[in-house]
Amino acid sequence: MNAIDNNKIQAEEISLGLLLDALFGEKDAPLVFHYDGQPVKPGYHITEVKAGQFSALDCGANPEAWTEIFIQLWDIDDGDRTHMPAGKFRAIVRKVSEHVQLDGSAKLTFEVSDGVRPMQLYCAAMPILRGGAVHVDLSPRPASCKPRDRWLAEETRKAAACCGPSAAGSGCCA
């Protein structure tokens, strides 16, 4: 996927709630995250789960507010361990939720580092069960311009309304 295609990346993002729901029936399946074209090492572990509430002013002077969940993955080899089972991942998040309020619909961001390279931010796609393991693709989280993103979303909505199946004969799709 081209990192310049912000709309495609944003469309693939899932929330913490969607991720946990997708993992529900797969408690014993290994959970394998993929980033930068590689799977995480079997010894990876979660070093931190944190929730943030943000208030900001975007580049168009529009106030913005959102909640975000950060899950920090340390991508290391740790002896002869296997990839973490999906049930263990869910249990870790459940344990965190006993102490930290986690909004299941919040934006989900993964912070990943191998302990050498700087930590990088990723968004998660919907998990896929393949070969007896649950695979989650992580895509780099690009910078974006919220006013531009809103404008593009509105233009897309207008085009769909004008050129959709019910409007095909309306003459607005020249």
Rank of each mutant, 00 (worst) to 15 (best):
I4W: 12
N6S: 09
N6F: 13
I9Y: 06
I9L: 02
E12V: 00
G17V: 03
L18T: 11
L19I: 06
F24G: 11
H34I: 07
D36Q: 07
G37K: 04
Q38N: 11
Q38D: 09
K41W: 01
G43Q: 07
Y44V: 02
H45F: 14
I46M: 08
I46C: 08
I46D: 02
E48A: 15
E48K: 13
V49F: 08
V49N: 08
K50E: 13
G52S: 07
F54P: 08
F54T: 14
A56E: 12
C59I: 12
G60L: 05
A61V: 04
W66C: 06
W66R: 12
T67Y: 00
E68H: 05
I69L: 02
I69G: 02
I69P: 01
I71Q: 09
I71T: 12
L73M: 06
D77Y: 07
D80I: 00
R81L: 15
T82R: 13
M84V: 08
M84H: 03
A86R: 00
A86F: 01
F89K: 06
F89P: 01
F89L: 05
R90G: 00
A91N: 05
R94K: 11
V96P: 00
Q101E: 02
L102I: 03
G104A: 13
S105C: 01
A106R: 09
A106I: 05
L108I: 13
L108C: 12
V112E: 05
G115C: 11
G115T: 12
V116F: 04
P118K: 13
P118C: 07
M119D: 06
M119Y: 04
Q120M: 11
L121R: 15
Y122P: 04
C123H: 10
C123R: 03
M126L: 14
M126F: 10
P127I: 05
P127G: 05
P127A: 00
R130Y: 05
G131T: 05
G132N: 03
G132W: 07
V134L: 08
H135Y: 04
H135T: 04
V136S: 03
D137F: 02
S139L: 09
P142E: 11
P142M: 11
P142K: 10
P142Q: 12
A143E: 15
A143N: 12
C145V: 03
R148E: 14
R148D: 14
D149H: 10
R150G: 01
W151L: 13
L152V: 10
E155T: 04
T156K: 14
R157I: 00
K158G: 02
C163G: 10
G169V: 03
C172S: 09
C173A: 08
C173L: 01
C173W: 01
C173M: 09
A174N: 08
